[in-house]
């Protein structure tokens, strides 16, 4: 399956690249959009092949990243519009989705998206219980109860009278 990006059919003049996700689906992206990712740019410079296989990014995440890249490659859009697109892009997304996104942007080296997503994740994490953080990041608690109590005692200032949330 070949899906064109959101800007509709590409003109023959514009060079395009096919990116394959780990699920095997292929996405057609203009080269101007693809080069916004530092990793993709490097690959394109190194080889002539127009098909790039990304073995660790799934369909859903890749589609989101490509939508982002295409919007940012569009010269017709003003910076203000792009900024508001960025805000819209991360708003309402679940923490799990953002986690995959930040990982994908890190792999693809899309710095500005990585920044936006990390900021959004930080905003969600604010005032959350430690249990929430452990659950969302799949962190195993390897402290002994005594060691954990000691850590909390040392950083007591950060715990003092704070209302923390668990959802």
């Amino acid at each position: 399956m070949v899906t064109t990006d959101e800007k509709g059919p590409l003109t023959a003049k514009k060079k395009s690249v096919i990116i394959r996700s780990c699920d095997g689906d292929e996405f057609l992206v203009s080269e101007s959009a693809a080069v916004l990712s530092t990793s993709l740019k490097k690959i394109l410079e190194e080889k002539e092949d127009r098909l790039i296989h990304l073995s660790d990014i799934d369909n859903k995440t890749l589609a989101m990243v490509i939508a982002y890249l295409s919007t940012h490659a569009d010269d017709g859009l003003s910076d203000d519009l792009k900024r508001s697109f960025d805000q819209e892009f991360v708003s309402g997304k679940e923490f799990d989705v953002l986690k995959y996104l930040v990982l994908a942007t890190d792999t693809l080296q899309v710095t500005c998206l990585c920044y936006t997503v990390a900021k959004k994740m930080a905003d969600i994490m604010k005032n959350k219980l430690v249990e929430w953080v452990r659950r969302e990041f799949d962190i195993q608690n390897d402290y002994t109860p005594e060691a954990e109590a000691e850590i909390r005692r040392l950083d007591a200032w950060a715990w003092d009278d704070r209302q923390l949330e668990d959802d």
Binding site: A122, M125, K126, N127, K128, V130, V133, R134, F137, I139, Q140, N141, D142, Y143, E148, I151, R152, D155, W157, A158, W159, R162, L164
Partner: peptide, 13 residues
């Protein structure tokens, strides 16, 4: 994040 959350998060692992 803010320093408070960072310090508190340190006790996860």
């Amino acid at each position: 994040l803010d320093g408070c959350t960072v310090a508190a998060t340190a006790s996860t692992c």
